[in-house]
C-alpha cells in the first residue's frame, strides 16, 4: 500500500496535524500494522518537498512545534491519478508452497501430509478472520473478506495439487 497516497487522501477532507493523520490512518487502514511516527513525518517531508502538501500552520506547545498540513492542488491530482490507476495483479508464480511440494516429492517425503498440514494452518487463520468479521463493523468485514478470499484461493490450489500429486510426482522425478 502506498502510505504517501493514503495520507494525501486523508488530507483531502481538511488540514490535519501529523498526529491526527497517524490516528486516522491506524483507525481505518492500520488494523494489524499501525504507522510509526517516524514514517508519518518522513512521508510528510517528502510530500512537502514534492509540492503535494503545504504547511497550513504551526502551533507551539510544550514539546516540539506541531505542523498542520494541507493538501495542494497537485496533491489532489496525484490522489486522483493513483485511484484511477489499476493495481497490478500479483500472479504469485514463485510460490513457496509450490517449491515445498516439489521438494517433498523430489526427496520422497509425504507431500500429501504437507498439504494437509498447510490446509489446517490456512483454516486456523480463516477461523480467526471469520471470528473478527462476526464481531466487527462493516469495514472489518470487508477487510477480513479480502483476506479470506485470498486464503480460499490458496486452499483451492492446495486441493487441486493434492488431487494431482501422483502425476506431479511422476513429472518431477522423471
Amino acid at each position: 500500500m502506498s502510505i504517501g497516497h493514503t495520507l494525501l487522501g486523508l488530507l483531502e477532507s481538511g488540514p490535519r496535524h501529523g498526529y491526527d493523520l497517524k490516528r486516522a490512518f491506524d483507525e481505518k487502514f492500520g488494523h494489524d500494522r499501525p504507522l510509526h511516527y517516524g514514517q508519518v513525518y518522513s512521508t510528510m517531508s517528502r510530500l512537502l518537498k514534492n509540492g503535494l502538501v503545504e504547511v497550513d500552520g504551526i502551533e507551539a506547545g510544550d514539546g516540539p512545534e506541531r505542523k498542520r498540513y494541507a493538501i495542494t492542488d497537485a496533491g489532489v491530482s496525484d490522489v486522483a491519478l493513483w485511484l484511477a490507476t489499476p493495481e497490478k495483479p500479483e500472479p504469485y508464480l514463485q510460490s513457496t508452497l509450490y517449491t515445498k511440494v516439489v521438494l517433498a516429492l523430489l526427496t520422497h517425503r509425504n507431500a500429501a501430509d504437507l498439504l494437509d498440514t498447510q490446509r489446517s494452518e490456512h483454516l486456523r487463520m480463516m477461523r480467526i478472520l471469520t471470528d473478527r468479521k462476526r464481531n466487527g463493523d462493516l469495514a472489518d468485514q470487508l477487510i477480513c473478506d479480502h483476506a479470506l478470499f485470498h486464503l480460499e484461493a490458496d486452499l483451492r490450489w492446495l486441493e487441486l495439487t493434492a488431487a494431482r500429486l501422483d502425476k506431479l510426482a511422476e513429472a518431477v522425478t522423471r
Binding site: A112, D116, R119, S120, H122, L123, M126, R127, L129, T130, L148, F149, L151, E152, L155, R156, E159, A162
Partner: peptide, 17 residues
C-alpha cells in the same frame, strides 16, 4: 463442505480422502 470459507465457521476439521 468443500468450501473453506464455510469450514472456517467450524471449531475444527477432519479431512476425508
Amino acid at each position: 463442505t468443500h468450501e473453506a470459507r464455510v469450514a472456517a465457521y467450524s471449531d475444527r476439521e477432519i479431512v476425508v480422502r
